[in-house]
């Protein structure tokens, strides 16, 4: 149990926690626009944390370079995809949920 394994484990489980919280948020939030918040933020951050944990475990090699490419791609692509989804719902005329409405 050296220090690198511990640091990578901390990153790994922090990321898992945020991804799990994002799933709970997607289930609990009342309407589509507020479900976008956990999908766009929690998932982006969660995957970055898990994959950075794997990079720390692996050390410097081709494998961690590939992991870095995946992290950077999802960091750019995931907010863009959620933005496209929100835009499609907005064009279709979906009204946002107001406080006091039924859940």
């Amino acid at each position: 149990m050296d220090i690198r394994t511990i640091v990578s484990g901390v990153f790994l489980f922090t990321g898992c926690f945020f991804m799990f919280v994002a799933s709970i948020g997607i289930i609990r939030f009342p309407d589509f626009y507020s479900r976008i918040h956990p999908a766009g933020k929690g998932d982006t951050m969660g995957q970055a944390m898990v994959l950075i944990g794997l990079m720390i475990y692996e050390g410097f090699s081709f494998v961690s370079l590939k992991l870095l490419i995946i992290v950077i791609f999802i960091l750019i692509a995931n907010p863009t995809a959620t933005h496209a989804l929100a835009n499609a719902a907005y064009v279709a005329g979906l009204k946002p949920w107001k406080k006091g409405d039924k859940r």
């Binding site: 991804m19 997607i26 289930i27 589509f32 479900r35 976008i36 999908a39 999802i74 989804l85 499609a88």
Partner: peptide, 30 residues
């Protein structure tokens, strides 16, 4: 991912389902 699958089955709108599938896809990459 199994929790999000609930939203993909239940989701009242098409957008909810696509959102759920996108999130499951991100989790699949990890």
């Amino acid at each position: 991912a199994a929790l999000v699958l609930y939203r993909a089955i239940r989701g009242p709108m098409v957008c909810d389902r696509v959102l759920a599938v996108n999130v499951i896809g991100t989790k699949t990459v990890v």
